[in-house]
Design a binder for these strands. Structure first.
Lengths: 338, 338
DNA sequence: CTGAAAGCGCTTACAG
DNA sequence: CTGAAAGCGCTTACAG
């Protein structure tokens, strides 16, 4: 249906190869020839068929990004950053969301849409190390994002979650808070997501000589605002009497703040709150949220660079664990006075 | 590098065609033959090369979605819905964002990544009708989303923005509000985005016999929280004394509420606020936000169905304007008492 | 510096 | 019901 190299070659009276050379800016083409071919290209409105190029080169220029949930602004913002970073390397991004379901995560990392994507950036939630074994070498590079850690030969990009959590808790302790709760341990999967941030909470409380009663740990089912609110309500109902809350993410922290206000408690007067992610919403909530701010731009950039490096570079690179930076951004929710 | 049909055919001792038949579940294959071939497929771990299939069939199974900004939860939620709707038709989504820049929008709709995507769903902001003329027939179907209207032969899916805006304003008027402001007219592009919602505001105020002073219209540069806050502040500063605000979207409404609170005004006591989009954040803000809720699922579903229909159906379909439903969701920000 | 051939891996008519 | 051939549109060696 479309115009092909052959048509252009015919019109210009040259071989297919010459047209290809012009299209690809191959340097050794005489200006006159280039001009003649270009005229034919313009006249026919020729555009190269990328699918054919892909088949021939074995590359598509498409990277897949799979995040749990676009409804979580952290992942939406991250996706935007990945798209921009990929564009800088002339890659396009195919976006998928897994709802944090192991089944979907497995599907994605075991070569779904193989051959169509050159590489994959995955932010797993429930994926198990064993699931990674099923991945084949011809599925292209895989870069893992986020808190989950695996013994597997794949690059992993994540901030130091334990240290970041400790920074948050240290900040609360420095305000004089003594009963610092943690919101966000998964109910059925205690050991997994939230694991590192929970450990940071424990370590820092211990270091500060503060109690880390299990009573102060509130489990949740999901990662959203409602989960945070429900967890906060549960904490209050069971009489845990926290004077501070460190939440697994901003969404839960926001939910917790709402629950606190509904109970007639003031933030930060009665309870200080710290979140994690630094989504724009937290900057703008009624009480602006103090939060751990991972360098999303760096995460996106490093992930894309890593995929591209493995695609174009030496295949013998070791799997690396890369830790981008983070900062604690203090706002109203942990102000000293109300 | 990979395993091809040929390898499988060789091992199974059949022709390539037979393997292809098995892979594609072609019905007329004897069970014995199917079994033999399947065994060879399993043994070699064969997976079809989709790129080759794409080249041959002229289809890739990829739809592109281009939205202004993933940082706006409305578009993030919509993108999620489109991905799900596409998956139901066995399509994958390539996501792009335009930042609402005409240049980027033009690039996207004039065949960027042609041949790689079967169709495009675009939510334009600054695109002009003339830009659409440059699109070629072999670029595949294009479905437009959102408020902008064009005289162009493309399907357009959007709720009735004028009617929806009127519903919002009517709600405010019914509460006894008399000075109802509109936030969100673009500063330099007065006629364009926000155009229909602004018209709805005018029409309804006129119908209700209320003033629609230009003083009550606050222009913004962008579409975010800060723009809403700045516009609200400007309204107050110029002494417009609004007792209600209808904002172009939820993000701006949220920003406006924050600005009101900072000025010591109560929502809804002093000023009632209505937004547009129904993002989850609005349900959860300190004062839950009343909003016009477009049926995002329907928008996503219709957009994908339309692309798929044009890809598979009769090419002679007329361009249609499709209006999904919407509802006004009333919450605290327009409650009768504070 | 340009050309003719082969082939990436598949599907689509066309035979048998 | 299965096979042999052609071709989707390109790029990659290889000649000249």
């Amino acid at each position: 249906m479309g115009v092909s190299l052959k048509d252009v070659a015919l019109l210009a009276g040259v071989s297919i190869k010459t047209v290809s050379n012009v299209v690809n800016n191959y340097p050794h083409v005489t200006p006159a020839m280039r001009d003649r071919v270009q005229r034919a290209i313009d006249e026919l409105g020729y555009r190269p068929n990328l699918t054919a190029r892909h088949l021939r080169k074995g590359r598509t220029g498409i990277i897949a990004l799979a995040v749990p949930e676009l409804g979580n602004p952290y992942f939406a913002e991250l996706a935007g950053a990945v798209i921009d970073a990929a564009a800088r390397h002339d890659y396009t991004v195919l976006l998928d969301h897994t709802a944090g379901l192991r089944e979907k995560e497995v599907l994605v990392c075991q070569g779904f849409r193989a051959h169509v994507i050159d590489g994959l950036i995955l932010s797993p939630i429930e994926l198990e190390a064993a699931d990674l074994l099923g991945r084949r070498s011809d599925d292209g590079p895989l870069v893992l994002l986020g808190e989950r850690e695996y013994e597997a030969p794949y690059d992993h990009i994540a901030i130091d979650n334990v240290a970041a959590a400790r920074t948050a808790v240290r900040h609360l302790a420095a305000l004089g808070r003594r009963r610092i709760a943690f919101i966000g341990a998964r109910r059925e999967l205690a050991r997994r997501p939230a694991h590192l941030r929970l450990r940071g909470w424990r370590e820092e409380l211990t270091a500060a000589g503060l109690p880390c009663d299990e009573e102060l740990v509130a489990a949740t089912d999901g990662y959203g605002r409602w989960d945070g609110a429900a967890a906060m309500t549960a904490l209050l109902d069971r009489g845990a009497e926290p004077d501070a809350v460190f939440a697994y993410n901003d969404l839960m922290a926001l939910g917790a703040m709402r629950a606190l206000v509904e109970r007639g408690l003031r933030v930060p007067g009665d309870v200080s709150v710290v979140g994690f992610d630094d989504i724009e919403e937290g900057r703008f909530s009624a009480t602006a949220l103090t939060t751990v701010s991972p360098d999303k731009q760096a995460i996106a950039r490093l992930a894309v660079e890593r995929v591209v490096a493995r695609l174009t570079g030496t295949p013998q690179m070791h799997a690396e664990r890369i830790q981008p930076g983070y900062t604690l951004v203090t706002r109203e929710s942990t102000a000293r006075r109300d």
